[in-house]
Design a binder for these strands. Sequence first.
DNA 1: GTGAAAGCGCTAACAC
DNA 2: GTGTTAGCGCTTTCAC
Lengths: 337, 337
Amino acid sequence: MITIKDVAKRAQVSPGTISNVLTGKRRVSELTRSRVLSAVEELGYHPNILARSLINRRSETIAVVATGLEYFGPSQTVVGIEQESHDLGYFLMLSLLYQPDSPVEMALSALLGRRVDGIIWAVPEVSDNRKWITPERLEHLPPMVFLSMAPRPGLTVVAADNRGGATQAVRHLADTGRRTIGVITGPLHWWEARERCDAWVETMRQIGLPTDDSLQVEGNWSAASGEQGLRRLLTLRPDIDAVFACNDQMALGALRAAHAAGRRVPEDLAVVGYDNIPEAAYFQPPLTTVYQGMIEVGRAAVRKLHTMIEAEHDGYAVAGPLNTLLSPELMIRESSR
Amino acid sequence: MITIKDVAKRAQVSPGTISNVLTGKRRVSELTRSRVLSAVEELGYHPNILARSLINRRSETIAVVATGLEYFGPSQTVVGIEQESHDLGYFLMLSLLYQPDSPVEMALSALLGRRVDGIIWAVPEVSDNRKWITPERLEHLPPMVFLSMAPRPGLTVVAADNRGGATQAVRHLADTGRRTIGVITGPLHWWEARERCDAWVETMRQIGLPTDDSLQVEGNWSAASGEQGLRRLLTLRPDIDAVFACNDQMALGALRAAHAAGRRVPEDLAVVGYDNIPEAAYFQPPLTTVYQGMIEVGRAAVRKLHTMIEAEHDGYAVAGPLNTLLSPELMIRESSR
DNA sequence: GTGAAAGCGCTAACAC
DNA sequence: GTGTTAGCGCTTTCAC
């Protein structure tokens, strides 16, 4: 492996000068500069970032701890995080948890050993999987940004506005004349699922529509649970004329159950989903759904983290709001017209 | 930040002893051992892996260069890679390309600076996006494993068997009595798309079925192109009684086009897809498709890379086959019954 | 503008 | 078994 000394020898200058040329932190004469650059080129030299980090106390690396990468939302989020990290000059370390509520200790300790400059927790809040975060704990940890969780004092949170998205969905159904609007929720120990469900309740009340228990079933994000969910709703409330499924997979299952029960969508039953997976526009019928813009959530998280890292490094407090909430957009298609 | 010296002072031993305890490479007496461990615990010490790497000449990190993470196959692959990396004790560096044919120089050079122990190229082979790989180039690069590309002397390749999967799909259609079997291919400058298409041609010929140009249209993996593709096939060949769409999104588009044209699936037209995305089982009707097992492809790639890294480190040549081909499995559902 | 030397946090010889 | 020391590859004073 080529080191800075090899290059120094070749260019007939000292290692310090090589460093000055490459980091650009100090002036170097044009002559030596070009000599150094061509030596670098000829030898195929790549400065060892690890050695540099040791001195700078910055690894130029951020970590993302994520889960459920096989789903659309999470993978979009990671894409956004990678893009922005790249743009800001960070390397990205990827660490996956099997479940949102897997213990974090091992992953965290590995990342600390790696001296990552910051961490993005792209793990949804589920049950009490955030209880490890205490003020004392935070003291000894690098800057962190949390995604998809309830705002909490002392934490920086970036999320899509689940309430806002769900509200748009329900309002749209009411606006198109639906009166008996059911909901198939995600697992209610997930924060995002609860937010969407709460927004359904609240919006229905505001409009003056019923929110009986018989209009509400809990799914587990899977198409199977959506199918089962709508079947159940149809039994409990044969008069139902619309259903808000809290993700597109469950909406897909609901579409199937509606078909099987002989209910035409949208004539007899309107269906709205959540997420806007690419396939949604090709469901039978094309699905009305909520586009969350998770790529932008990921990007925003990295930008936020970057300002925190810079602030810590320069020793001043971070300015600006601690929480960022991105507005989703309703995509209206056949399933609710 | 706590360093090894802080721990040494606290435990009243030398830094070397701390290292011996933590790396376990040399015997340490039970007494000092426990003293050290509790000092580590009390101070919350995390050894600086970067400093360690500097000496060991091993970063304990591998990189994955990927693209298209928003699609099911690629994200599954990355999940598999992460799992196996974790199991083998590697950190995972994630680097995404915007397109499979984006230039690799920048990404590569960044990874070299990082001294990653190996690289997995989870980027599908497209056009000539592999032409940068030359024997001389490989000399100066760390061990690498390539995914989803044609085997090539000197390279280690891990892939799912695209020909095998496509052959199963076509045979299945023929076995169920279909005679005029069309194909909607992926973009033919993709290696995987070409493999599946070639297998269609070959299998059809073996069975003695026609492979006219009119039975073949090229899509771009999207549902829209699948819809358009089937529309075109139906115009060219009204007698068509089956179609093999080379991924599930295009199959979904085809399903829609069939519906619009009044062709019943599977009675009038059988449809088979590829990938087995989770939604496929809930299409109308449920889609017959090919399960590739990309998680296992990712895992196999990391295991392979690991043996190469170990071999290089210990200075002997790698044993075992250079290429690994994993067998996919046909999932038969309503769309082809 | 450039060189010499110290040191980032750790491990590995080498002593004892 | 444990301490001492050199040095991994780089940046950064401090001289000149």
